[in-house]
Design a protein around this nucleic acid. Structure first.
Lengths: 347, 347
DNA sequence: CTGTTAGCGCATTCAG
DNA sequence: CTGAATGCGCTAACAG
């Protein structure tokens, strides 16, 4: 309860100055670190600040030329997905170290929302943008539109857009995950992916196909499901049902993402409850980790990766570019984050 | 590629005005909806806007008195937790409907970070604040400090702070979850909670204890673990180990949150792998849902609730308060969101 | 319908 | 070490 009666109207530098018996400039200087202000005067100013509950108006501050907003725009496709939540967390951590904040928007994976969000973030004078592309048209991301505002893409890249990108080692992870199945003797391996994330999906499929090809295993088209409309686990369950109902069902399934893995395992659970034997159910390799994988009724191998690190790296790329004097001259960088393939201990 | 050569410097109203051959005011009016501007002039203005890649500076805009920033501050304890991610998503959805944005910060559950974040958000002229309290001192949230900036608390409430709050039906959910165990004949029921979230934890324990009391079951203090320092699943696993190593171990465990449930189940998994029989493992009731609960090797009952709805409701409370002419006069509201108790289908 | 004036809160520049 | 003047981008309020 430091306060004065009417804390309702927001105080400005002027009022603080008057209360401290100095000029607004002295207040500003004090708040900026106190260089060239007598200590006792600083005391008075800070006391007035406390008493009035004054907070500097950062918007007005960033209005002045040369001053930056201290805001980094982050646009992700689905905040509710823990993966992107952790991604945002990583960005926030790194960005906060420089005293900046993130202003976060959700695109829902829809291009028009992304376009609108980017426009709005620009209007709010963000210093830079970190974005998980929604897919679809992307002219609003061209340097032409963004001016000198740096952009970092995460998770997916956009061809023709020459900017910094952080990706996972999708190809390598899928390759090694698939090899694990082949090493275990599987030859009929199902593939579960979806079209939603064309870029990522394509890369993961590439790794999958490469592993099969190397071992001389012919991929049976019947076992490849890539055309699911959405990434919901429900549709993955449906796809799994079809695979398992085939005359010669797969003995293992490679799932290209978390949602698909969950869907597949739910379907397997359903069958077990209906009397199927666990031994007849396929083993799973899941690109994307998920909790309690080791408690699943079938063996699960996960391709783990750290969303938070991905976010941290994206933030680092952006911050480093912000520090460059000749931002747009420097070449675009591509960082591929490692993934780890490991079998979840099976009950 | 609509652009002119140098898109690098950000254009202002003035430049748009000059290009369109009008005054800055006409540009402003056009962008504000175009009332009282001849259609053909509007055309010219909009063309200039496009050509220059102009975006209104929202910060400068909100500097003018009466104009609001269109920003809602959201402070949560852990972005990486899907629960809070979904919460933020819900907030974002509702807030976006009014053309506003959220500016999101992570407190990590630390009071000092919360304090700093709140100060910063104030400085950025947010219209209101939605916050999941970190716990600890909270004088920085008093009306005295916040002035007329509305605040909505979510998940936990802070005693002595008379503001709008959205909570879960913690007591009722825990009560009904515990009853489910009692109905199934269990009398030795373990309790797994932690001190991190004192408020929520207290309420859930209350529901648990009430159910036992009503059925005349004496809670064995040995079976109650509430003093874990952190919410990490690892420490929950440790606590579970102790419970199961008792001479008379519990036949069921009530877990007060998601993290604890995961930890407990991991420990159970460990024991099963070491040769224990599933029949000797305790049944679980988990406050907080988690995926694939139906595939666990022991029966699991979940107390489900929807973080996104919680977020939506918090946003609604805030927006409605923003619309009140006499904000601070209106009484604080308390909303309790329902939870659903349901047994996960067990393999 | 359109332009001019003025000022929001702050910090840089230049005097004292 | 401190203060006064000035202008950042924008838009009410008031001319015209």
């Amino acid at each position: 309860m430091s306060g004065v009666a009417g804390a309702s109207k927001k105080p400005t530098v002027k009022e603080v100055a008057r209360r401290a018996g100095v000029s607004p400039m002295t207040v500003s200087r004090t708040l900026a670190g106190g260089a060239n202000v007598r200590p006792d005067v600083q005391e008075r100013v800070l006391a007035a600040v406390r008493e009035l509950g004054y907070h500097r108006n950062e918007n007005a501050r960033s209005l002045r030329p040369g001053q930056s907003s201290g805001l980094i725009g982050v646009a992700i496709t689905n905040l509710g997905n823990p993966y992107y939540g952790n991604f945002a967390l990583g960005v926030e951590e790194v960005v906060a170290e420089t005293g900046r904040r993130i202003i976060l928007g959700n695109t829902g994976g829809e291009s028009w929302r992304e376009r609108q969000l980017v426009a709005d973030l620009r209007g709010r004078q963000v210093e830079g943008l970190i974005l998980v592309p929604a897919g679809g048209p992307s002219d609003h991301l061209s340097p032409d539109h963004l001016g000198d505002m740096p952009l970092v893409l995460a998770s997916r890249r956009i061809y023709g857009l020459d900017v910094d990108v952080v990706l996972l080692d999708d190809v390598g992870g899928a390759y090694r995950g698939t090899l694990a199945l082949l090493d275990a003797g599987h030859t009929r391996i199902g593939y579960l992916g979806n079209v939603g994330s064309a870029f990522t999906g394509g890369r993961r499929y590439e790794g999958f196909a490469r592993a099969l090809a190397e071992r001389g295993v012919i991929a049976d088209p019947e076992l490849i499901v890539r055309e699911q409309q959405d990434a919901a686990s429900a549709s993955a369950g449906e796809a799994t049902r079809r695979l398992l109902d085939l005359p010669a069902p797969p003995t293992a399934i490679f799932s290209a993402n978390n949602r698909n893995s969950i869907g597949a395992l739910r379907e397997i659970g359903r069958r077990l409850r209906a009397g199927s034997r666990a031994a007849d159910m396929p083993e799973i390799v899941s690109f994307d980790d998920f909790e309690l994988a080791e408690l699943m009724p079938v063996p699960v191998t996960v391709v783990e990766h750290d969303a938070r690190q991905l976010g941290r790296e994206a933030a680092r790329l952006l911050l480093s570019r912000l520090q460059m004097t000749d931002r747009s001259e420097q070449p675009a960088r591509l960082v591929e984050m490692p993934v780890r393939v490991g079998r979840a201990v099976h009950v």
